[in-house]
Computed example of a mutant assay.
Amino acid sequence: MKIRLVNAGIFTPVDDIELTLAPPAEGFYWIDADVEDLALLQPVFNLHDLAVEDCLSDEEQRPKIEIYESHYFIVVNSIRFDDEEIFLRALNVFLGRHYIITVTKQKINELRTLKPILWEQEVSSPDRFLYLLVDLVVDNYFAVGDRIEVKIEKLEEDILMHTKKSHLSEIIGLRGEILWLKKMLGPQKEVVNTLNKKDLRLIDDQLQKYFSDIYENAVKISETFETYRDLMGNLREAYQSSIANRANEIMRVFTAITTIFMPLTVITGIYGMNFDNIPEIHTRYGYYGVIGVMVTLGCGMLYVFRKKEWL
């Protein structure tokens, strides 16, 4: 657990948690904690039991905002994409009048990225800290969306050029990830909308208007992933169509080969009959003549098929 006094974007470490009970003369306290630290933090800041229970739960938490008497409890999902799987990591935030507590089970990149922004914008209030943090979390969805779009385009190109059976599992896996993410985006969008529209006494009225911009971005993200879902459906259709075309191409080749060998089979069948009076059967060079006719006939038919683009 790290305790910092933040004033005008400048961080001052605080060693004694008891000092955070009273509002500082200037700035606010930021406590960056793990879930194990809640046992110490709950009695100090009178954190609500249900909020603490949500933080400690192993179940996946949906984004939400809970309003209690002395603080707000906000859950948003940070996103990460490693080209194979999409990960959502819960970021739990307790917002008070003179403090903000961030509680995570894993490291959240947005918290690391936020530090220079706090210094650059000379942040001195916890509600502005919350605004900048949520803004970073939502903006990161755009970056992940761009990477997903690139992956979809590459997958589409691979399917059109060289279709493989493994492509189907990639399509199904990525489509499942997108559907799951789309499902989680709805509650997160509502959280931002609540921060934008609801009268919240711990958030300055002037600052609250800025949440409308984040809400617009959240709506765009939701629409973008809806488009990705449709694109994955199109990819699956393209895969099935490519497989069908490939099968048709193989059958066309087999059909052409069969057609070429049909007259050759007739010739060999005729000269394979056990009759004494077959014309040219005792000819000295009859064997070579028949072979020549068969080769000429086969090559001629192959030429005709290639010219008509049947092969």
Results as ranks from 00 to 15, higher is better:
14 V>R: 08
18 E>K: 14
19 L>Q: 13
20 T>L: 07
22 A>I: 10
22 A>E: 15
31 I>W: 03
32 D>S: 06
36 E>G: 09
42 Q>H: 03
43 P>H: 03
46 N>V: 07
48 H>W: 05
53 E>K: 06
59 E>W: 01
72 Y>C: 05
75 V>I: 13
75 V>A: 06
86 I>W: 12
87 F>M: 12
87 F>L: 11
89 R>S: 15
92 N>L: 05
97 R>T: 08
99 Y>Q: 06
111 L>C: 10
111 L>I: 13
114 L>A: 10
120 E>T: 07
134 V>E: 10
142 F>D: 09
145 G>A: 11
150 V>W: 12
151 K>Y: 14
155 L>C: 11
157 E>I: 14
165 K>F: 08
168 L>E: 01
174 L>N: 05
181 L>I: 00
191 V>F: 00
191 V>C: 09
196 N>L: 07
202 L>N: 04
217 N>Y: 12
219 V>R: 05
224 T>P: 01
224 T>V: 07
228 Y>P: 09
231 L>W: 06
231 L>V: 10
239 Y>H: 13
244 A>D: 11
245 N>V: 08
248 N>V: 07
255 T>D: 09
262 M>W: 09
268 T>Y: 06
269 G>W: 03
269 G>E: 08
272 G>T: 12
273 M>E: 08
284 R>Q: 14
287 Y>P: 08
288 Y>V: 15
291 I>F: 15
294 M>I: 08
297 L>F: 05
309 E>L: 07
